[in-house]
Amino acid sequence: MTTPLAGYLLVAALLFAIGLGGALVRRNAILVLIGIELMLNAANLNLIAFWRFGPHPEALTGMMFAIFSIAVAAAEAAVGLGLVIAIYRHTNTAELDKIDRMKG
């Protein structure tokens, strides 16, 4: 019989694997960024679950970590999508295997 904590951790692990698979399998740069966002969200779920079921929730450590992680993920999404738009303007494509100008 699994505990509630194990349930949440397994959901987070599965979501992380889905995000990793998406980042590795898809060809579009925007989908790769979405996969990275899913992985960050899975980590946040871990942090909140440990905060809820761990000792000393009143210290707010896991909660604060998750809130700062959400803020950093938002900054990452803004810069990442800006980069994708800039690359699209230069190469007219967002397909990652066509952006091979630096390949030797």
Partner: peptide, 27 residues
């Protein structure tokens, strides 16, 4: 990519199931 993702999930799931009973839990 699919193999890598599945392997990562296998390792994470094994780690969670093997160690979660050692974590003190308050409900």
């Amino acid at each position: 990519g699919l193999v890598i993702a599945a392997a990562v999930f296998a390792v994470l799931g094994w780690a969670v199931l093997a160690s979660v009973s050692a974590v003190p839990q308050q409900n």
